[in-house]
Design a protein around this nucleic acid. Structure first.
Lengths: 214, 214
DNA sequence: TATAAAACCCCTATTTTCAGGGATGTTAGT
DNA sequence: ACTAACATCCCTGAAAATAGGGGTTTTATA
């Protein structure tokens, strides 16, 4: 009996590549391909009882991204597996995916063989994450350990965000309905906590932590 | 007579996709595929007289990127065309490519039909840039116009870079062997020029312009 | 060779930040 | 009930940054 697969990827050419790989395998039956998650979601809704073994998905797609799709898939039927195939190799993304309980991740520059191995492994009930991805994940966890010692409170985040937006202490105080002295204390604490020297350092931290854009 | 094509892309699966598209076209003869530019460069060196009509290449590849490859290709034989197929859609990259005189650019999420059209157009001697890419390019040129009114001198860049690195005015003066007053003047001018309010604004600008990392 | 732009320097006065203290009330967890 | 963490506020003095002026000299280039 064949496994039922669904593929979602907005890169048409890449999709063709995947198909050409999978079509030469006789165990896989490709039910559907789509260039965004929404189509897949609709299909799943219309066919609630169809057995779907694996969904191969990209992360960034128009309309509905891979993470949202994964959530929908798992809610419909926990036994449907998800394999993410993407070019994103940033730690945050990977972290995010693992937390969302995807069954595997293979980068797009992986070999054909690895992809097939990933699919087989996942259909066999195990997880599959390529070595590259595992390394990024683990390295990130280690370095996070150090960073997480520095944990800002919500108020501190409020203040540093406004500082990075070029407001003066007085202006921040006015906006938050606090005393100027309070903001000064926060600024002082932030400088000490984050091991920086001045506003420039605070601003860089705010950007790194994405409290402000660009 | 067939056209001779070479393809470079480090995404194996994508390569397969491209191949499956091109193999079904009888006019194209694929001489070589490789996952980085170096292999291609070596091939070109070994076979200096072979007629190569088109090189399809990704931008970011290990060992040798698409831009360097393009340069080598054009130096060897000006009549060999280059089509870039990549996921990069940032304005800088596109600008860079056009300046390096590639013959076309199609994003990886393009349809199969567009790719074929691009290839045909380029082999016909014209340039082909997908609409999406053209838009990004033009939009960038327009917005650059506004930005380029703000042009920093080298010295100003030196100073803002150091400011963003959290050095004080006095420290910057010492490092650059200048008077503290000079640095103060530069800071003042920068704040006025860049329309920001303080160090935080200068720091953000320095990051945006990539004068400093993160 | 004008002349504009860049690089450099100085001054005053005000505001803001930084560094160092200390303090109080509230909240959440042990 | 105790304690730690948090949020809030205050003070002083020094250092730095900001805002507003003013300059000269060097360098590129039209």
């Amino acid at each position: 009996m064949k496994y039922n697969l669904i593929i979602a990827d907005d890169h048409k050419m890449f999709l063709d590549g995947l198909l050409s790989i999978l079509n030469s395998e006789k165990d896989y039956n490709i039910l559907l391909t789509a260039k965004d998650g929404k189509h897949i979601a609709k299909y799943l809704e219309i066919n609630p009882d169809e057995k779907i073994d694996l969904i191969i998905t990209d992360i960034s797609m128009p309309e509905m991204d891979g993470i949202s799709l994964n959530k929908i898939v798992k809610e419909r039927n926990k036994s449907t597996k998800t394999l993410v195939v993407s070019m994103h190799t940033d730690a945050e993304m990977i972290d995010n995916l693992i937390e969302h309980d995807v069954d595997g991740y293979v980068p797009k520059n992986a070999e054909k063989e690895e992809l097939l191995k990933a699919i087989k492994t996942i259909l066999g009930g195990e997880k599959y994450f390529s070595k590259e991805i595992k390394n990024i994940y683990l390295e990130n966890k280690f370095s996070k350990k150090k960073q997480e010692e520095i944990k800002l409170t919500q108020r501190e985040i409020d203040v540093i965000t406004l500082i990075a937006q070029e407001f003066t202490t007085q202006e921040i105080a006015d906006q938050l309905f606090l005393s100027k002295h309070t903001i000064e204390s926060y600024r002082k604490n932030l400088i000490a906590k984050l091991n920086v020297r001045n506003l420039a350092g605070l601003t860089k931290y705010a950007i790194k932590m994405k409290y402000i854009k660009s």
